[in-house]
Amino acid sequence: MADPKKKGKAEGPVSYDPSFSKEVFEKVDYGEKIKMCMQCGVCAASCPLSMVMDYSPRKIFALIRAGKRSEVLSSKAIMLCTSCYSCKVRCPRKVPVVDVMHGLANYALKQGYVPREETALFGREFWKQILRLGRIDEKDLPRRYFFSKGIIPGIKKSMELADMGIVLMLHKRMKLLPERSVKGIKELRKMLEKASAMGNGGA
């Protein structure tokens, strides 16, 4: 594990610390695939969200190699990935960039980092609902997400998006009645628990 106190004590202006790379290779899902990266930047330029990321995927991989543990694990970029798969399809070294980003986000949360609270909250509410119903309730999930930060921000956010909610209901994209759980919800929960124990979990 990288010790932040040791940083900067090595000779020269930049100290490369391999311990974080090793940690990523061993503990992060698909982390080992980063070894293939040749820093060409195709992922960065293919990413529709790179303009709002603090570090492009390429930079994340460079930071891992440079041993910048806290920069990587507290980076918003690793939680902004929307799984559009453009990077994974184009990567000339066949690095599964999407999977690595999700792996990093998952690992960051486990390590107590919360790089992007909104994403983490939404993710938690999403999974709670999947475990409860086996599906997503289109009005219940946003409501729970909006109110997860407290009652007042919840009301505020709901008011902001009320117009859209009404339109969605008029077009029958959102039902008034609560969703029922899927058939065989107990079996689904067992499957999800097993998958979670196997480790390949997303953010």
């Binding site: 930047g41 195709v42 330029a45 790179s50």
Partner: peptide, 12 residues
Amino acid sequence: VEGENTQTGEQV
């Protein structure tokens, strides 16, 4: 033409 300048980190 779009890419990422990997020496400056800027989007091209």
